[in-house]
Simulated assay, not measured.
Amino acid sequence: MFLSRIRRHFWFKCFGTTAFTSCFFAAYLYLLKSPAGSVTTVPLTWLDHRIPFEPLALPVYLSLWVYISLPPALMLTRAQVIDYGLRIGALCLAGLAVFYLWPNAVPPAHIDWDRYPGMAFLKGVDAAGNACPSLHVATAVFAAFWLHWMVPSLRVDRRARWFSAAWCVAIVYSTMATKQHVAIDVLVGTIFGTVMALALKPRPLPTAGWSLPT
């Protein structure tokens, strides 16, 4: 079932996702390294002190790129993939606009990153800027809504929704456990992703016309 869906327009999905991600990161890193104004530090909360640094959360953090690729990978037509790309692209553009108008960053974590090679690499590529709202969280939440809506067309056990939700929650947790984000970033990112998903909700929902023929 899933392999049949993934094979549909595989190269279109593969190159399209790569191109989308590359364009996003080019803009993201430009704003990260060249903020338009003074950078605001997002404050810590009690929750940030309760969640310890956990280097083992790094694979979960990086799994976002697999998670947000699942909706387009499981779609059947190019039109569906393009439609999804435009909608999540709107979320990303809105987030980048916030970073341009309000450059912000998380406070230093005071951790010796050299002791954790994987984390040191991540910190070198994705510094502590462009923090609030967390687009890592927002895109995960956005994808979670789409996967929730797609479950009926996938003809899988509805428990798949619980698995998807648990994966999303794990990604959200990982943003704090890796000290890439703080609680305020996560809260605002969750709200932002939810609002954008509901505002850009497909009509009709992806059910009829989204299933493989029997």
Rank of each mutant, 00 (worst) to 15 (best):
Y30W: 14
C132T: 12
P71I: 10
P204Y: 13
H136M: 05
L31K: 05
R7K: 14
F145E: 08
L44T: 14
S63C: 12
V81T: 13
G37N: 08
S211K: 11
F53R: 09
G95Y: 04
T214Y: 01
V188T: 13
L47H: 03
W162P: 15
G89V: 13
G37S: 15
A73Y: 06
I68T: 08
N130H: 10
H136D: 12
D126C: 09
T17F: 07
H49K: 13
Y61R: 00
S164G: 14
P202A: 12
R161P: 13
A160E: 06
G118T: 07
G189F: 04
L64I: 14
A120T: 07
A105D: 08
H136K: 02
A97V: 09
I191Q: 05
F2I: 05
T207Y: 05
W167N: 01
S134Y: 01
F99S: 07
I88R: 01
G189Q: 10
V98A: 08
T190I: 10
L29A: 08
A26D: 04
F142E: 07
G193W: 01
W167V: 14
Y173M: 11
W11P: 00
A131H: 05
S63R: 00
T45D: 00
L58C: 11
G129W: 12
L122C: 14
L74F: 06
T17M: 10
P204M: 11
L122Y: 00
P108D: 15
Y84S: 05
Y173D: 05
A138N: 02
K33L: 09
G16H: 09
V137K: 04
A73G: 08
W65P: 06
I191N: 02
N104K: 10
R8S: 10
L205S: 10
L91E: 07
R115Y: 03
S34Y: 15
T18I: 14
A36D: 05
F25K: 03
A160W: 15
A94T: 10
A208E: 11
L91F: 01
A57I: 11
T41V: 15
M75L: 15
V39K: 06
S4I: 01
V188E: 08
L32I: 00
A131W: 03
P213W: 02
F2K: 01
W149V: 11
Q80V: 09
F142Y: 14
A26V: 13
R158Q: 11
Y28K: 07
Y100M: 14
F24W: 09
F163I: 15
A26M: 06
V141R: 00
W46K: 12
L64G: 09
P35H: 01
L187F: 14
